[in-house]
Amino acid sequence: MRNIFLFIRRFSNFLFFLVLQIFALYFLFRYNKFHEAAFMGVAGELTGKVSERYNTVEYYFNLKKTNEALVSENLALRKMLKQNYESPDTSQRFIIDSVKIDSVTVAQRYKYFDSKVVGNFVSEQNNYFTIHRGQNQGIEKDWGVISPTGIAGRIVNVGPNYSVVMSALNRQFKVNSMLKNSGEKGSVQWDGENPQYMLMKDVPKSAKVAKGDSVITSNLSDIYPAGIMVGTIAEVIDDKSSNFFMLKLKTSTNFYNLQYVTVIQDLQKEEKLRVEKAIKKVQ
């Protein structure tokens, strides 16, 4: 017994070193898997407040680009309006008949929440950003996040007023997407190289691809509605040894000056998951 105490006293520094290392590595690997860490809620609130202060300055410098992005998004939405289409024949009427007007909520699948970005990073291999909206404002884990021009990320951690979003520029982020022209599906991921480019894999070589083609989220995506912009093809990498193309995409979202994002709630997600789970059980 005495020897044990002597040993601990003699190597107390080394043991303390080991304990701290184990703590740090435990945090790291647990976070990699579940995106949960001790004190993340409290720490998120504190760092969020500090980042928000910084953002008030940073935002000023990005105003012009933010404005342009919002205007172009508005324009795209305005182009979809019914009033744009007018027939000279007055007996013709345009009716949107797929939505029940008096009980919209029954057919509604996606709900949108606007949010301000505070604290955005692009220089690590696994990037995250913080948004100023949390549990108290009705945000939950695993919801999709989009920017005015395209996909932005997925919510991984929710605090009372701030949430942490896994940026699309994260090695663990994956989104199921498709070519807008032909509908061939593939998965898009970031390779850690350049914040302006992402890689799309598993596109069959039968697909017609060309530089500049759009890639959008597919209907298989778990968190996004179908048809959200992902990027445009910048380079087609033809791998001779496989039957699949590798596409280098220019991201449609500019991650350098992300200021406003939209959080998407899928109202039918639970039902979808439940049904899929039931199938797995049967198998």
Binding site: L25, F27, L28, F29, Y31, A37, S51, G119, E124
Partner: peptide, 13 residues
């Protein structure tokens, strides 16, 4: 630093 960058443990170790 890790809590600011949202990656606990990576810089602490």
């Amino acid at each position: 630093l890790d809590y600011f960058l949202k990656f606990p443990g990576l810089h602490a170790a």
